[in-house]
Amino acid sequence: MSEHSLRYIDNDSFFTRIDALSKLIWVILVILTTFQLTSNLSRVVMLAVVVFVMIILARVPLKTIWQAMPIILIMGTLLFFVHLFTAPSTQIINVLGFSVGKEGFDKGLQYFLRITIMVLASFILIWTTDIRDLMVGLVSIGMPYRYAFTVFMALRFLPVVQQEVDAVKAAHAIRGRASSSPIRHRIRLWQRYMFTVIVNGLRKAENTALAIESRGFGAFPDRTFVKEFHWTKTGIILLILFIVFAIWLIFWEKNLPIL
């Protein structure tokens, strides 16, 4: 009974019931708006909206969010520290007892927030969308089904990689440590994780590709769909509300005093 944090949650929430394309457009809008924003305060507001969608509208269980936390935070945190230490700073400020450069801190925070908003929004899409519906939606607006399907395959392999990493990690732990230097040992383990995960991951990917081709995938330029795509009213309303909010946010932050 393994648990994987990056899969569709079949909980019939308000957000789950919205059609897949509206959700995809919502994610794209979140990302585009976030790149328009110029202050960290408005980015925090955007993050709050995304978190609201995640917890209230999509009812993603806190446990799932908690489990996905490392993946959500890793990029943002890395970028935060990179900018914290590399951005030229003229002013020193005190953050939680540490002296850091103000510009570096602001820049780091900016990247952290941007990445985290983007990752969270994408995860909400994964958690609330049967990727098949997304595929049907994309095909209905004219995308060839082979391309639409690659989106699905990419998402499908996230949990596979996660599962594989877990298994390899457990297997390695019981092999013990063969080097007196913990750092060398760590490096070696990492090399091996990567190798084993990639080899087994590719093998599984190949098996999936074989299986799908041998079920007639790609036999014809088009295919039939049992389920048709329908735009949902709630999806359209949500998009309109979000666009209004995004425009408001962009104008609102223009009038903010410079922090």
């Binding site: 079920r215 007639g216 995938f217 036999a219 014809f220 295919r223 039939t224 049992v226």
Partner: peptide, 14 residues
């Protein structure tokens, strides 16, 4: 959906 996947690829009537 999984059962329908193959026949859909073969363009059978929904």
């Amino acid at each position: 959906d999984e059962i329908a996947f193959g026949p859909e690829n073969l363009r059978r009537d929904p």
